[in-house]
Amino acid sequence: MRELTYGQGIKEGMRIKMLENPDVFIFGEDVGLFGGCFGVTAGLFEEFGEKRVRDTPISEGAIIGAAVGAAALGLRPIPELMFVDFATVGMDQLVNQAAKMRYMFGGKLKLPMVVRLPSGGGVAAAAQHSQSLEAWFTHVPGLKVVYPSNAQDAIGLMLTAIDDDNPVIYLENKTLYAVASQVEDEVKPIPLGKANIKREGNDVTIITYGKQVYDSLKAAEMLEKDGIDVEVIDLRSLYPLDTEAIFESVKKTHKVVIVSEEAKRGSYAGELAAIIADECFYECDAPIKRVCALNTPIPFSGVLESYVLPNADDVVQAVKSLF
């Protein structure tokens, strides 16, 4: 075992595949010389050269579009947009092109590309640099969506995502980049659609991913003192989704809280709640709860931002409301 930060994990996943496969290359805003806005690609430019780690203009449509075109020719590009919020500018290329070309063209094209999108609030970046937009991407047939919470998963999911023949949206949480955790010496690829039970428990299931895994684990410890035995599931992959792990847990605990950092209205958390209601309604002996951000843009001032974003106390409160 060794210690690695989340950001280093993302880099290691890309680096392993770049060493293995010359068709894998990176481009995006400031990913080269500068090493990435959050330092994730630091050193890769020096190691692989400009051809494979390329700085682009600030031009999100061109970045995603270039990835679509290059992937259609059989390459495996990893475009990065500095913030998930900027996906709006490249959204046509993601939603109308990347996600649909295979289907529209009768299954005759593969589009292997991994789009890296730093997400989430908590860094005083205000409304246009702090969003959690996973619902937009999971809503679109043709896209796969992953969201690692730690270095080990960041590596394992990256390895699988790069080898996948479909467009994969790789969401990264900005507040986790510097968070270190233990990582196996040789990390194996993690299949997409395989959740991770972070903590086993019998009384209530918390379903979460990304940064909220930490808030949920913290809440679980607090609840333990009150005698509530919490299970925490880290989804890791939002689509494909490990429904089996979710249903199994719900059938055991009969209570569910879903935690995400999204604005609650129209959230992916809502989709999870609907899936559970569809399949496990009679297994639930309490309402399915969602803990999300408030339905506002993310504000700048720390006091306001913390007020809007969900935290461990919110999770504790939501769990307690079920008993």
């Binding site: 290359f25 051809k51 449509g61 061109a62 995603i64 579009g65 270039a66 990835a67 679509v68 075109g69 290059a70 992937a71 259609a72 020719l73 059989g74 390459l75 046509d92 290329q93 109308n96 092109q97």
Partner: peptide, 15 residues
Amino acid sequence: AGHNIATGAGLGIQY
């Protein structure tokens, strides 16, 4: 939409 996809194909060719 083609402006960017063609540019990407050009990138693929150059690569």
